[in-house]
Write a protein that binds this DNA or RNA. Sequence first.
DNA 1: CAAATATAATAGTATTACTATCAATTATGC
DNA 2: GCATAATTGATAGTAATACTATTATATTTG
Lengths: 224, 224
Amino acid sequence: MKSLHININVSEALYLKNPESSVLGKSIVTNSIMLINELGFEAFTFKKLGERIESPESSIYRYFENKHTLLIYLVSWYWSWTEYQLVFATANIDSPVERLKRSINILTQPIKVDISFSHINEVLLHDIIITESAKAYHTKAVDNENEKGYFKAYKRVVQRVSDIVLEINPRFEFPHMLISTVIEGAHQQRYFAEHLPALTDLKKGKDSISEFYTQMVFKMIERA
Amino acid sequence: MKSLHININVSEALYLKNPESSVLGKSIVTNSIMLINELGFEAFTFKKLGERIESPESSIYRYFENKHTLLIYLVSWYWSWTEYQLVFATANIDSPVERLKRSINILTQPIKVDISFSHINEVLLHDIIITESAKAYHTKAVDNENEKGYFKAYKRVVQRVSDIVLEINPRFEFPHMLISTVIEGAHQQRYFAEHLPALTDLKKGKDSISEFYTQMVFKMIERA
DNA sequence: CAAATATAATAGTATTACTATCAATTATGC
DNA sequence: GCATAATTGATAGTAATACTATTATATTTG
């Protein structure tokens, strides 16, 4: 995927000024990913980010309304990027079973380094998705923000994979439920393995997550 | 379960002074559940809670270190209560398959009103679990707090149900992963149904969550 | 090169998340 | 029934957070 210069499209509703449009904007995004990882989302502030990039916090406020929308921006970027990976991995594959397998792998495997998008470190961003992304939609503003389209990228990913499920078994009643369970489950299990190992069965070194959820999907959708 | 006067045991590490031990303590817990539901965890403060119960916030700080540990206290109370329900529902049932079915129901069904614990509204508490509980362990302090035993109640619930899985199929490799996926998945799907319906397939009125996850568990653990 | 735009520098405000102090009330032990 | 201890109330104070506002200085662009 090297130097394809694909543009990941993030909804304009998520920023005041497009961070991709300037050096400062990209620096805000790049360094926010690092700083959220270092401090955790609660302790992360625009003031600290400003110190890190040696710009006043007021400049950051010209790009993002607040740290909450910045988080949703990052999450949204991640899902757009994931969608692009899904499209890429399933192109020209006839068998829907094979397409589904590859899709589940993308949704559940650890991230490999992707140098296509220079100012975003996908490995660190993936860690933010695992640790912080639930906070993006577990708020009182979720309905309002959903109407504004803040979560469209995630929904598109779920829809895309659900469609493959329905290709294989058009009578399966719960494709979205199954796929969102797999996506969220895979992230959670990875978090549990690291921090609450009693809640999972993953051994250090061995990665059984993809295997487990692939099995789950195919067992659930197989026709009676 | 009326008037059994069962005591739900919450780790002493989670409070400075046991809120069960006084009228003020119980009022703090009762009203925090209501106020977190009304405002969301982010906007909830001890100051506002103090106004609601007509006590100064400094009095609340004598019971709980901060709102974060109060949340973990509530989550912990919920899982202890769930464990008690699990024990109750599976007592004197010989068949492990039947015990597993009943356990999954308890973990995935909507809460019924339980009047056993007068100062805690379990229906509202369940809403907090669904909406806010991920915030209890998605923090930088998770490892430290895990060592202090803050999440023991949740782990006990997962362990208990995993043990039934292993009774049915001792060779199944991922019982904890399966059960934690079911628990978290069921909560998530309930949240999605309400706020992000594109991520699920639940229709208003009909509750397919228990059915879906029961199927999932039995399909996953059935022997080859 | 002037005008528009973006960024820096700085200041200021209401709220949050506490900590501290001391007076008033209530409970308990003898 | 009274002294003492423990709990709660009332109030104040502080550093940090989450912004908003203003003006000066760069930088870009037409």
